[in-house]
Design a protein around this nucleic acid. Structure first.
Length: 466
RNA sequence: GCUCCCAUCGUCUAGAGGCCUAGGACGGAGCCCUCUCAAGGCUUAAACCGGGGUUCGAAUCCCCGUGGGAGCGCCA
């Protein structure tokens, strides 16, 4: 039987890294086994579902490359099907109409809590035959009263639930609309989902769903309940760290493969390997190897992985990602060759694309002033001689290359009998405005003759005044 | 409260009874390389939640605590 997995988010909040990780696991598992990955939007809660959230899910999945093979299915478009199964349930005696009011249910819960019992429906309407006037009934599933349900979970092993702990859950509201657990079960059946991979906050729902599936007379899928992601402080994931739209990571300059690499390593490992390409993951990942314990989100490791992936990425591809980052800083790049050259120069020294954009600014536009500390320390009267020498040698260059620039700097140092730093640093501050940049020779090459010479001239004048 | 889940360095993890003097990675400290910043290399501090068993032997198996998490909704 072909493997079929699904990701079934509800568009009630933003797609964040917790959701992305379960999506990733489902996607990888399907890929690994040549199966299909289905996207299903669980939007039955019309009150809280939003267009915006749906769009974030779609855009986020696309940015990450977690492409679905089927869907997206929308539960709101499957209402007829749910009603059909609902009618079957009622007809077969698997479900019944319950006329208890919300107020009555609340009272019941309060009473149960008062005696330290687990709040649950007592089955009052189970055997009711007559409707109650003035009450629109809900539909409840007739859960087995005894015996137990064993969830065979590939991550947690067998988890046993007594049916006595479960109650008759509502599968349709008084307005006739179906509820979550019911829709999920019908969908998973109809879509022939073979592996349900989801957060372990759903583990407690699973026995109910299994009972529903049994009533439907359909086989149960394989379950894998993956542990949750905690915030960096070990508490619940919050806005402060990670519970933001995944698209924010894109905007902050993270590479999709870096985020995915980070998330897959939360609860999964392969020997001592830390950096994985998407191709490797598709070959190596197995849901069976995922840990049981929740793990804390560590932004610093994500940052490190992002840098690792930036170092390994194709410069041309990075250049495309860099454009919007530069645009956000007010720079519209038209010269792709220079952009790619800048990327290559900065590739090993940027943790994010945003940082790369910031550090490449001087290639594309003139800076307004020198970094104060750097200028004070480096563009001194002492720097006039080396700056002048480098400028002269550079202007005499026939071909503008890194090798030529290298020679100019080295020869200057030799001729003046000073260290390389005494030459390179003034030049650096002169052309970039601060004391940090890629190696000075490649910096000059990428910057080009015109800008280099002009900026050296300005620095020379500045230094002469010191 | 009840039910379920979980528990190795600060964090992510390796570890499926002897290979553990508990390994790797991020982060920290130090050194090397070096024109700056990175990258890279080397070194270093840092953990088996507690208590009972089982066993010749336990981080690994069992039980009990403790701590954390989830669920208990006409939310998903």
């Amino acid at each position: 039987m072909p493997i079929r997995t699904r990701f079934a988010p509800s568009p009630t909040g933003l797609l964040h890294i917790g959701g992305v990780r379960t999506a990733l696991f489902s996607w990888l598992y399907a890929r690994r086994h040549g199966g299909k990955f289905i996207l299903r939007i669980e939007d039955t809660d019309r009150e809280r579902s939003t267009e915006e959230a749906t769009q974030v899910i779609l855009d986020g999945m696309q940015w990450l490359g977690l492409v679905h093979d089927e869907g997206p299915y929308y539960q709101t478009r499957r209402m007829d099907r749910y009603r059909e199964v609902l009618a079957q349930f009622l007809a077969a005696g698997h479900a019944y109409r319950c006329y208890c009011t919300k107020e009555e249910l609340e009272e019941m819960r309060a009473r149960q809590m008062a005696v330290k019992a687990k709040p649950r429906y007592d089955g009052t309407c189970r055997h009711r035959t007559e409707p109650r006037a003035g009450v629109d009934p809900v539909v409840r599933f007739k859960n087995p009263v005894d015996g137990n349900v064993v969830v065979e979970d590939v991550i947690h092993g067998n988890v046993v639930f007594d049916n006595a702990e479960l109650d008759d859950l509502i599968i349709a509201r008084s307005d006739g609309t179906p509820t979550y657990n019911f829709c999920v079960v019908v969908d998973d059946m109809d879509m022939q989902v073979t592996h349900v991979i989801r957060g372990d906050d759903h583990l407690n729902n699973t026995p109910r769903q299994i009972n529903l599936l049994r009533a439907l007379g359909t086989p149960t899928p394989v379950y894998a309940h993956v542990p949750m992601i905690l915030g960096a402080d070990g508490a619940k994931l919050s806005k402060r760290h990670g519970a933001v739209s995944v698209l924010q990571y894109r905007d902050e300059g993270y590479l999709p493969e870096a985020l995915l690499n980070y998330l897959v390593r939360l609860g999964w490992s392969h020997g001592d390997q830390e950096v994985f390409s998407l191709e490797e993951l598709q070959q190596l990942f197995d849901i069976r190897d995922v840990n049981k314990a929740a793990s804390a989100f560590n932004p610093e490791k994500l940052l490190w992985l992002n840098q690792q992936h930036i170092m390994r990425a194709a410069p041309e591809r990075l250049a495309e990602f860099l454009k919007p980052q530069l645009a956000a800083l007010g720079v519209a790049v038209t010269d792709d060759r220079t952009l790619v050259a800048a990327v290559k120069a900065l590739q090993v020294r940027a943790k994010t694309l945003r940082e790369m954009a910031q550090n490449s600014l001087f290639f594309f536009r003139d800076f307004t002033g020198y970094d104060e500390a750097a200028a004070k320390k480096i563009l001194t009267a002492e720097s006039v001689a080396p700056l002048r020498s480098v400028r002269d040698k550079l202007s005499a260059l026939d071909e503008w290359t890194a090798a030529g620039a290298h020679e100019a700097v080295n020869q200057t140092a030799t001729e003046l009998g000073i260290g390389l730093g005494k030459v390179a640093q003034p030049v650096r501050v002169a052309v970039v405005g601060g004391s940090v940049s890629p190696p000075i020779d490649v910096t000059l090459e990428v910057l080009g003759r015109q800008k280099t010479l002009a900026r050296l001239q300005l620095a020379l004048e500045y230094a002469a005044r010191q």
